[in-house]
Simulated assay, not measured.
Amino acid sequence: MALLDNPLSREELKKVIEGRGAARRVPMMIHEWINPATFKERAGEYKAVLEHYPCDTVVTYLNIPQVFDAPPDDPSYRWLNFDNPFPPGVALDTNSALDDWAKLDGVLADFPNPNYPGLITKNPLPENGVYRVGLWWYWLFERLWSIRGMENALCDFYENGDEVHRLFRALTDFYKALVARGRKELRLDAIWTSDDIGMQTSPFFSIDVFREFFKPYYKELIDHVHSLGMHFWLHACGNIKPFIPELIEIGLDVLHPIQKYTMAEKEIAAEFGKDICIWGGMDVQRIIPYGTPDDVRREVRFMFDTYFRRDGHFMLTAGNNMTIDTPLENLKALLDEALTYGITICR
């Protein structure tokens, strides 16, 4: 339990996400993006600071398959049905694990089973009335490039479209079963996943590619999540402004992080803030590692003044994982300003 304030309740968070009103303060989930172990011998100091502030969600990781490695009790619980051909340390974004689409038939015939017992953690979630989120990384684009390599993946939309659709169909069916288990076995309130479909200056691909290869599968899974009574949260780094109206159209509930220095925050807030909940991400590229505590506090206030709405639709977190160059004083400033100004602005 946080020492300075209690977490918001599940109902308070739902109200904010759905745009039905602000809570008693702006929701904050900074803890989800910082691991004290990152700071090695100083881990205890960072952990002590985090324990002094509230986190308004409890997040559990869903154990989705790895590309090559399968658990001992299910050798088919992996995305590809063959062993890793690369030497240790080879990056999958620069190499093609699935080097030939002719192998796809075998991959799909031996696709991982979403009923695998180890998919769901056996650790019970706390019964404290806090909003529950189930998380896995890599939705469609990130999963595609993780098995095809980045260069191949970007060419596949034009050269191997049928195969991409077959893969995305199988992934979507797996994810639909996964989220149904999350709702039934963990009583989740939301599903959170990632698809970094933007670069620093623009999306990775055209709106036409998005509409053909992503939008239908995104919509199908979001609709399925909604049918189970849950919200859908998406982390997508980079400049994705052209895609935001499409994401709103298909019912995405929460979008993270509106990455600083890639899009104009005030424009995004003005155009889309009424239609989607923005899970604003504090900049971790420049301000957190290299700014002063005063810089951090100013940025928190800028974000709150930009995104906050009386009808909700705004929550605060970090833009991505905080790294070892995060000063402890900057973390304190972020948490303290988020809590104190988050109370003030809601009055």
Rank of each mutant, 00 (worst) to 15 (best):
S96M: 11
N321E: 13
L335M: 15
W137R: 09
D105G: 07
D195Q: 06
R297M: 02
V225I: 14
C277H: 04
L119C: 03
E220C: 01
I248T: 09
R310Q: 09
S202V: 00
A190K: 07
E151A: 15
K215E: 07
P257D: 10
I207K: 15
W279A: 05
H235E: 08
H224E: 14
Q259N: 06
R347G: 10
F174T: 10
M315Y: 00
Y116A: 06
A177H: 07
P85Q: 10
P203I: 02
N95E: 14
E51I: 02
L8P: 04
W33F: 13
K241L: 03
P88M: 10
E212C: 00
P203R: 12
H256D: 14
N35R: 14
R301V: 14
R143G: 01
H31N: 08
T306F: 02
D208W: 05
C155I: 12
E299Q: 13
G198D: 12
R169P: 00
N330A: 08
N123A: 14
M28E: 08
F86T: 13
A22C: 10
V300A: 05
Y175Q: 08
P87M: 03
D295V: 04
P88L: 08
S9P: 06
H313P: 00
D311V: 00
I276D: 03
S194C: 12
A270K: 15
D74P: 01
N115W: 10
I287W: 03
A43F: 04
D336F: 06
E246N: 02
K176W: 02
P327C: 06
M303F: 01
D156V: 13
A37R: 14
G273P: 04
V130I: 15
R78A: 11
D69F: 11
L80I: 04
A333V: 06
L13Q: 04
N128I: 09
L316C: 10
N115A: 15
D283Q: 07
L247W: 11
I120N: 03
E299P: 00
